[in-house]
Write a protein that binds this DNA or RNA. Structure first.
Lengths: 227, 227
DNA sequence: CGCAAGTATTTTGTATACAGTATTAAAAAT
DNA sequence: ATTTTTAATACTGTATACAAAATACTTGCG
């Protein structure tokens, strides 16, 4: 991946291939920092400091913060700037309730209109996930887990649905990220996933919805201790 | 979206008169302009021009645009600025599918845990709406209609649910705004509302969900001609 | 008259500067 | 010693300035 070095505004910056604007890159960067715990909930964001850290001026950084505020990852307090949003246990539970509903909806639609090939792709993700599970590779397992859920939602071919799902998922990501490390309840989750995929393959909408239901209820149980 | 009550060092303080920051005001202003058709879908936004029109400099305007971009009302094209997002018929239909699902979820929860008083407030809104309907006051009717739907969602006492619902609702607002003017199918909508409120008062979750279901499916029928 | 190339102008993207507001520290008073 | 007042500092909010990219325009040529 070749990256050009360009002179801009007196500051040497490395431009990536993607022509994304600077504030766009900062958005994804900050999102990652929040999810990975680099920026902790409740922590106040000092624009000067963070900007210097990232090597950008305040203007694009502020724009990125506005974007993240709308996403709900950051809170904007008037005259006092941005604070990384802290979610209460109820918040998380409420988000999971909505996520559950959205995934059930997506699942039902998917049973109707997903192609066999698309379903096979989900199956492939699942099988890969199981392999990582057996190998004890937590991070890979976690990532594929997310991908499967996102993938099922994508099967519904409903952009706003996927978007809203992604929005909420990004908020609980951090919690799930911590949560999946502690508890040794993968086995149950994997079994649930197996049943979910099976229902999807048989295009059994009702069963799929129900399996997703229990999976996400259990998901809250698995995670509730860490919030 | 800033709340009046902010958490500060453990003490709960009530913020003084919402002296919203400038970009915050611009956000709401632009949102209104988009909904009211002042800024039309597909229209490119020239920062200088619009800024001058609003009497603000480009900096807070740009911040507002980033915020709206995250909301999905505006699209950010790299190196070419912001464009008012244009939604396809499928987009709108997809949004209504999600809105329907969300409202049904909210309705079910509301039947369980809303207080009698809260339900009475929804009833009051409904009665007021019917009065405006009979008086032929379309704008007032329209506004109360929205309030009722938002109100039912609020009964679920689930902030993320309300937020996500509001997000999608704001996107279809423009369409509904146009849609309700043309068609003379209020009568059906009002009758559906009546049944919705009745089911809510009886805390009959299943019936309520079903009534919301048909109401929103019909809503799409009422509106689909104008997209 | 049409078209292409090059130039001018507009517009966005980013940085910097300055003003206003909150926060902290220090000093004064009770 | 504790509280109040006041000054210093730091940070945010907004405006302006400048560079890069895109768009519009003009001119030269066929």
């Amino acid at each position: 991946m070749a990256s050009d070095v360009v002179e801009h505004g007196g500051r040497r910056t490395v431009a990536t291939i993607s022509r994304q604007s600077l504030h766009g890159e900062i958005v994804t960067r900050l999102r990652d920092m929040i999810i990975e715990g680099d920026l902790q909930p409740g922590e106040r964001i000092y624009e000067n400091q963070l900007g210097e850290e990232l090597g950008v001026s305040r203007t694009p950084l502020r724009e990125a913060l506005k974007f993240l505020a709308s996403e709900g990852l950051v809170e904007l307090v008037p005259s006092r700037g941005a604070v990384v949003k802290r979610f209460s246990a109820k918040d998380i539970e409420d988000m999971l309730i909505v996520l559950r509903s959205l995934e059930m909806l997506a699942g039902k639609i998917a049973c109707r209109q997903a192609s066999d090939e698309e379903i096979a792709q989900i199956r492939a993700l699942h099988d890969a996930m199981v392999r990582h599970y057996k190998a004890g590779e937590r991070l890979e397992y976690y990532k594929l887990n997310q991908q499967i859920h996102t993938g099922i939602v994508a099967l519904a071919n409903n952009a706003p649905l996927a978007e809203v799902h992604g929005l909420l998922q990004s908020r609980v990501k951090r919690i799930r990220f911590i949560g999946h490390e502690g508890a040794e309840r993968w086995a149950g989750a994997v079994a649930e996933h197996e049943r979910i995929i099976a229902a999807l393959e048989q295009r059994d909408a009702e069963t799929l919805a129900q399996e997703l239901d229990v999976h996400l209820v259990n998901g809250w149980e698995r995670v509730k201790s860490v919030v």
